[in-house]
Write a protein that binds this DNA or RNA. Structure first.
Length: 472
RNA sequence: GGCACCAUAGCCAAGUGGUAAGGCCGGGGUCUGCAAAACCCCUAUUCUCCAGUUCGAAUCUGGAUGGUGCCUCCA
């Protein structure tokens, strides 16, 4: 598998340090509010990467943190008149609600910043001993000029930045360099604080990821991922901290996903142009949101719009219907199996698998992976329209559609309701009898009646097929 | 000012040297008592524009135009 590594700005062969075992760290949410669709993109993308590596029989140790202490947390907690801890507990539960429904697997570890304070302090101490820090009135700072490779990820040159930003030198405050950042913030009145060698305070944003990733995954990670906006300064600073402290490469592969835009502008809480996953899910459903996100390549910008979401809704239904159709065929015996076509389908399944893997191997090309699945779906539909296929071939096609969708985190087996109530079946029978007597007026009125109850009847060569109307 | 990124049909979106995947919408048809679903056909001689390299470019090079992101919290 090849993956675009932002460190080299090229696609590279993805090779783990340990045989068959990947360590992945993904920057998680700051838990002060429900997350929006833009936040959801990395959760879904890297969950898909994880699922694909598992599919390829790798072991994966996956860590995604919760940032549960920062200015936004403190401000929100104060305005809601609850503690920061209470806010975090509540929002973490809400995170799981949405993430679980998006079928994002839980990480092996979901560390919280506030539960990693000793490790954070230890790392800052190490940096202090090695001379990378200095003190200001409000906290302990990292001196980025001491770290030779600073800017290697985001390809920024410190001097150019400062020269160009001359109009904004006020941002420098008392810092030695514009890019210096705080490791430990001294306590202000009314803020949560922890004891440390430098007095009461709380960790800066960047240090928590360095400490948490080291705690659970060691000093060198295989993959570290997050949104594009984290590349600078967040990830650059993590590199500076971790490599200065550990004297080892921090990350082998850096992956960053593009944004979800609204009217071509980045969706962001601060921009006010955001759509919460919770709200969108009630309209479109979680599966459709996941499908929508994976239908674009993860590094490309993805515009959030009504029409493409409807396209995603209908596209996903197409897959579900095909599986449903196979189930219907399997449940109804047919004579005269078409052997040639059955074998053709089995061959096509193999071909699909290869195309799917080729797409995924190429930097997680999920749009192409969907194309492979859709081609198989059409093949199933085409062949079954004209021929009776063997159960073996149908089962194989079914199994692969479901397996490949599952790699993408989509459950193609999900049914609103597989059990059709007897009273509904009775009405279907009545309609069928009416049809047999060519009493179409009665038949149609029963069909309307069932429709009103949320059931749909489709006449097929194998008899009437009843199902629940597809819901959102 | 610096550093990145993007530009493909009505919409969304793959494709990074060999003659434009896939999904949605729309039109026509097959099937059906009628539907529904499904299938078939049609829907970009062309990839923002202009030069160049090449037997050959959406794909490489140079330039232009338009748009975005990061440099401050940010997925």
């Amino acid at each position: 598998m090849r993956v675009y590594n932002d460190l080299s700005r090229t696609k590279e062969e993805l090779v783990p340090q340990k045989e068959n075992h990947f360590t992945i760290y993904v920057c998680g949410p700051t838990v002060y509010d429900l997350f929006h669709l833009g936040n959801a993109r990395p959760f879904i993308i890297y969950d898909t990467l994880r699922r694909y590596l598992l599919y390829k029989n790798y072991k994966v140790t996956y860590v995604q943190n919760f940032t549960d202490i920062d200015d936004k947390m403190i401000n929100r907690a104060q305005s809601r008149e609850i503690s920061v801890k209470e806010l975090a507990d509540e929002m973490i539960a809400e995170y799981y609600h949405d993430a679980d429904n998006l079928n994002v697997m839980r990480a092996d570890h979901h560390p919280r910043a506030t539960e990693t304070i000793p490790e954070i302090i230890e790392m800052i101490s190490t940096l202090e001993e090695k001379g990378y820090t200095y003190n200001l009135n409000d906290g302990i700072y990292y001196d980025t000029s001491k770290f030779e490779d600073y800017g290697k990820l985001s390809k920024r040159d410190l001097d150019d930045q400062e020269a160009g930003a001359s109009e904004r030198v006020d941002l420098l405050d008392d810092k030695r360099n514009l890019s210096d950042f705080v490791l430990w913030k001294f306590k202000k009145e009314g803020e949560p604080a922890w004891n440390s060698p430098w007095g009461e305070g709380r960790p800066g944003w960047h240090i928590e990821c360095s400490a948490m990733s080291k705690k659970f995954l060691g000093e060198t990670l295989d993959i570290h991922a997050g949104g594009m906006d984290l590349m600078f300064p967040h990830h650059e600073n993590e590199i500076a901290q971790s490599e200065a402290a550990n004297e080892k490469p921090f990350v082998n592969y850096w992956m960053h996903n593009g944004f979800i835009n609204v009217d071509n502008v980045k969706m962001a809480k601060s921009g006010g142009n955001f759509f919460l996953v919770r709200e969108l899910a009630s309209e479109y459903g979680y599966d459709v949101l996941r499908f929508f996100i994976l239908q674009a390549h993860y590094r490309m910008p993805l515009n959030f719009e009504e029409e493409p979401l409807m396209a995603a809704t209908h596209g996903w239904q197409r897959v579900l219907r095909s599986v449903d159709h196979i189930d219907f065929l399997l449940a109804n015996e047919t004579a005269q199996i078409a052997e040639t076509e059955s074998e053709a389908l089995i061959d096509y399944v193999e071909k699909t698998k290869q195309e799917f893997e080729r797409a995924m191997d190429d930097d997680l090309n999920t749009p192409d992976a969907f194309a492979a699945i859709f081609n198989l779906v059409r093949q199933v539909n085409t062949l079954t329209a004209d021929y009776s296929l063997s159960n073996e071939s149908l089962k194989k096609a079914r199994a692969y559609i479901i397996e490949l969708c599952a790699v993408l985190g989509l459950d193609a087996e999900k049914r609103v309701d597989t059990e059709i109530p007897q009273e509904i079946l009775d009405k279907v029978k009545l309609r069928d009898d009416a049809k047999a007597e060519r009493d179409f007026a009665t038949a149609d009125s029963i069909r309307d009646e069932l429709h009103a109850l949320g059931y749909k009847i489709e006449d097929t060569p194998q008899g009437p097929k009843v199902s629940r109307e597809v819901e959102k």
